[in-house]
Amino acid sequence: LSEQDFVSVFGITRGQFAALPGWKQLQMKKEKGLF
Rank of each mutant, 00 (worst) to 15 (best):
K29V: 13
R14Y: 12
E3M: 03
G22Y: 11
Q25W: 00
F10Q: 02
Q16G: 05
K24Y: 01
V9M: 09
G15E: 15
V9D: 04
F17A: 05
V9A: 08
S2C: 09
V7G: 06
E3V: 06
Q27R: 09
E3R: 03
Q25G: 02
Q4M: 13
Q27W: 05
F35M: 15
F10P: 01
E31A: 09
Q25S: 01
Q16A: 09
K29S: 13
S2K: 10
S8F: 03
P21I: 02
F17T: 03
Q25E: 02
T13Y: 13
T13V: 02
F10D: 06
L34N: 13
F6W: 09
K32C: 07
S8Y: 00
F10M: 06
G22E: 14
W23G: 08
D5C: 00
A18Q: 12
A19L: 10
L20F: 00
L34K: 13
S2W: 06
A19P: 01
R14W: 05
L26V: 14
L1Y: 01
K29F: 13
R14P: 10
A19Q: 05
T13G: 05
P21M: 01
F6Q: 05
F6V: 00
R14T: 08
K32F: 03
M28Q: 00
R14E: 12
A19D: 12
E31Q: 06
S8C: 12
S8Q: 10
K32M: 14
F6E: 00
M28W: 01
F10S: 05
F17E: 06
G15F: 09
F10V: 06
V7F: 12
G33Q: 15
F17K: 03
A18D: 15
P21F: 01
W23H: 11
L20W: 00
L1K: 07
K29R: 12
K24P: 03
S2G: 11
A19W: 01
M28L: 03
G33A: 09
W23L: 08
Q25K: 06
Q4H: 07
F35K: 00
E31L: 04
L34P: 13
E31H: 02
F10E: 07
K32L: 12
T13I: 03
V9T: 10
A19E: 13
L1E: 15
Q16M: 07
G11M: 00
G15W: 05
I12Y: 06
K30Q: 13
G15Q: 14
F10L: 05
Q25V: 02
G15H: 13
M28R: 00
D5P: 01
G22K: 14
F17P: 01
K24R: 09
Q27K: 12
E31T: 01
A19I: 03
E3K: 04
Q4D: 02
A18P: 04
S2V: 06
R14Q: 12
F17Q: 05
V7W: 06
F6H: 00
G15D: 13
G33N: 05
Q27L: 07
V7M: 07
Q4C: 00
Q4N: 06
W23N: 06
F17R: 02
S2D: 15
T13K: 06
V7S: 14
Q16C: 04
Q16L: 05
Q27T: 03
S8R: 13
K29G: 07
L20G: 04
G15T: 12
T13F: 05
G15S: 15
F35Q: 12
S2Y: 03
L20C: 00
Q27V: 10
S2Q: 04
G11D: 01
Q25Y: 00
L20R: 02
G15I: 14
G11E: 01
P21V: 02
F35V: 15
L34Q: 14
I12K: 06
M28G: 00
K24L: 09
W23D: 13
D5K: 10
A19Y: 04
T13P: 08
I12H: 01
G11R: 03
I12V: 11
K29A: 09
E31I: 04
W23M: 11
F6K: 02
K30D: 15
L20K: 01
K30R: 13
F17M: 08
L20E: 05
P21K: 04
F35W: 10
E31R: 03
G11V: 02
G15M: 13
L34I: 15
E3L: 06
L20P: 01
W23E: 14
L1S: 10
G22C: 04
V7H: 14
K32N: 14
A19K: 09
E3W: 05
E3Q: 08
K30C: 06
K29H: 11
G15V: 11
F10K: 06
L1C: 07
L26F: 09
A18L: 12
P21Q: 07
K29N: 11
F17H: 00
Q27M: 07
G11P: 01
V9L: 10
